[in-house]
Measured scan of single mutants.
Amino acid sequence: REWTEQETLLLLEALEMYKDDWNKVSEHVGSRTQDECILHFLR
């Protein structure tokens, strides 16, 4: 499923705060797994 604008904003926000702590990043996004966050980030 597609990422919403809100999810993408949360991802970018989390990356600024937590860098590459993907566990914390995915918790911050809330609706995505670590793997989904990493894959989206790599696009």
Rank of each mutant, 00 (worst) to 15 (best):
residue 4 T to H: 05
residue 33 T to H: 07
residue 13 E to T: 07
residue 1 R to H: 06
residue 29 V to E: 01
residue 35 D to A: 12
residue 22 W to L: 02
residue 42 L to E: 15
residue 25 V to I: 14
residue 34 Q to K: 14
residue 17 M to Q: 10
residue 7 E to C: 00
residue 12 L to K: 13
residue 35 D to T: 07
residue 2 E to W: 01
residue 36 E to W: 00
residue 33 T to L: 10
residue 7 E to H: 01
residue 35 D to G: 11
residue 24 K to T: 10
residue 10 L to I: 05
residue 32 R to P: 00
residue 35 D to M: 10
residue 1 R to F: 15
residue 13 E to P: 00
residue 10 L to A: 04
residue 16 E to H: 06
residue 35 D to E: 09
residue 30 G to D: 09
residue 9 L to H: 14
residue 35 D to L: 06
residue 39 L to F: 10
residue 25 V to K: 10
residue 24 K to E: 13
residue 38 I to Y: 12
residue 22 W to Q: 00
residue 20 D to G: 10
residue 7 E to S: 00
residue 30 G to S: 08
residue 36 E to K: 03
residue 22 W to D: 05
residue 1 R to S: 14
residue 27 E to T: 08
residue 9 L to N: 12
residue 16 E to C: 05
residue 1 R to G: 13
residue 34 Q to G: 11
residue 10 L to Y: 10
residue 6 Q to G: 10
residue 35 D to F: 06
residue 6 Q to H: 06
residue 37 C to D: 03
residue 31 S to I: 13
residue 1 R to D: 14
residue 31 S to K: 10
residue 33 T to R: 13
residue 39 L to C: 14
residue 22 W to V: 03
residue 22 W to I: 02
residue 29 V to A: 02
residue 22 W to Y: 08
residue 7 E to V: 01
residue 25 V to C: 14
residue 19 K to A: 06
residue 26 S to L: 06
residue 3 W to R: 04
residue 30 G to I: 08
residue 19 K to E: 10
residue 35 D to S: 12
residue 31 S to Q: 13
residue 27 E to D: 07
residue 11 L to C: 08
residue 4 T to E: 09
residue 38 I to N: 14
residue 36 E to Q: 12
residue 8 T to S: 08
residue 5 E to D: 02
residue 25 V to G: 01
residue 10 L to V: 11
residue 27 E to P: 02
residue 1 R to N: 14
residue 40 H to A: 09
residue 21 D to P: 00
residue 36 E to G: 00
residue 26 S to T: 12
residue 37 C to K: 05
residue 35 D to C: 09
residue 28 H to Y: 07
residue 18 Y to D: 06
residue 2 E to R: 13
residue 14 A to Q: 01
residue 39 L to Q: 12
residue 11 L to N: 02
residue 40 H to P: 02
residue 32 R to A: 03
residue 35 D to H: 12
residue 17 M to D: 09
residue 17 M to C: 06
residue 20 D to S: 11
residue 15 L to A: 15
residue 10 L to G: 08
residue 42 L to G: 15
residue 14 A to G: 12
residue 30 G to W: 01
residue 13 E to V: 03
residue 28 H to V: 05
residue 16 E to T: 09
residue 3 W to G: 04
residue 22 W to A: 01
residue 34 Q to E: 10
residue 29 V to W: 00
residue 40 H to C: 05
residue 13 E to I: 01
residue 41 F to I: 06
residue 24 K to C: 08
residue 24 K to G: 12
residue 14 A to W: 00
residue 3 W to D: 12
residue 15 L to N: 10
residue 36 E to N: 02
residue 34 Q to C: 12
residue 9 L to G: 13
residue 10 L to M: 11
residue 2 E to Q: 15
residue 23 N to F: 11
residue 20 D to A: 07
residue 3 W to T: 07
residue 34 Q to T: 13
residue 3 W to M: 07
residue 11 L to F: 09
residue 39 L to P: 06
residue 13 E to K: 09
residue 20 D to K: 11
residue 20 D to H: 11
residue 18 Y to R: 02
residue 6 Q to Y: 07
residue 3 W to C: 03
residue 23 N to E: 12
residue 15 L to D: 14
residue 18 Y to W: 08
residue 41 F to H: 15
residue 3 W to E: 04
residue 36 E to D: 10
residue 4 T to P: 02
residue 24 K to A: 13
residue 16 E to Q: 07
residue 33 T to D: 12
residue 20 D to T: 04
residue 14 A to T: 00
residue 29 V to L: 09
residue 40 H to V: 04
residue 29 V to K: 02
residue 26 S to H: 12
residue 40 H to F: 15
residue 10 L to K: 11
residue 19 K to P: 09
residue 33 T to S: 08
residue 8 T to M: 13
residue 9 L to S: 13
residue 27 E to Y: 03
residue 11 L to Y: 05
residue 25 V to D: 03
residue 26 S to G: 12
residue 3 W to N: 07
residue 4 T to Y: 06
residue 39 L to V: 10
residue 10 L to N: 07
residue 34 Q to R: 10
residue 30 G to E: 12
residue 25 V to W: 03
residue 37 C to S: 04
residue 38 I to Q: 12
residue 20 D to P: 11
residue 9 L to R: 13
residue 38 I to F: 10
residue 21 D to M: 01
residue 29 V to I: 00
residue 22 W to P: 01
residue 13 E to F: 00
residue 23 N to P: 13
residue 17 M to G: 08
residue 33 T to N: 13
residue 34 Q to V: 10
residue 24 K to S: 09
residue 6 Q to F: 07
residue 9 L to I: 12
residue 40 H to G: 07
residue 27 E to H: 04
residue 2 E to F: 03
residue 19 K to F: 08
residue 11 L to V: 07
residue 1 R to K: 15
residue 40 H to K: 13
residue 38 I to P: 04
residue 31 S to C: 09
residue 32 R to G: 01
residue 8 T to N: 14
residue 36 E to M: 00
residue 40 H to M: 08
residue 38 I to M: 13
residue 37 C to G: 01
residue 10 L to H: 08
residue 31 S to D: 11
residue 17 M to L: 11
residue 19 K to N: 14
residue 2 E to V: 14
residue 11 L to I: 02
residue 27 E to A: 03
residue 22 W to K: 04
residue 4 T to K: 13
residue 37 C to N: 02
residue 27 E to M: 07
residue 19 K to R: 08
residue 37 C to I: 15
residue 34 Q to Y: 11
residue 33 T to F: 02
residue 34 Q to M: 06
residue 28 H to Q: 06
residue 14 A to N: 02
residue 16 E to P: 10
residue 16 E to I: 01
residue 21 D to A: 07
residue 37 C to P: 01
residue 26 S to C: 09
residue 16 E to M: 04
residue 42 L to A: 14
residue 11 L to Q: 02
residue 38 I to R: 15
residue 20 D to W: 06
residue 18 Y to N: 10
residue 35 D to W: 05
residue 38 I to L: 12
residue 12 L to S: 08
residue 1 R to E: 14
residue 24 K to F: 11
residue 10 L to F: 06
residue 41 F to Y: 13
residue 15 L to E: 14
residue 2 E to P: 14
residue 34 Q to H: 11
residue 6 Q to L: 08
residue 42 L to P: 13
residue 28 H to S: 01
residue 15 L to P: 02
residue 21 D to H: 04
residue 25 V to Y: 01
residue 38 I to H: 15
residue 23 N to R: 12
residue 8 T to D: 07
residue 19 K to W: 03
residue 7 E to A: 03
residue 8 T to W: 07
residue 8 T to P: 00
residue 39 L to I: 07
residue 2 E to A: 12
residue 23 N to Y: 06
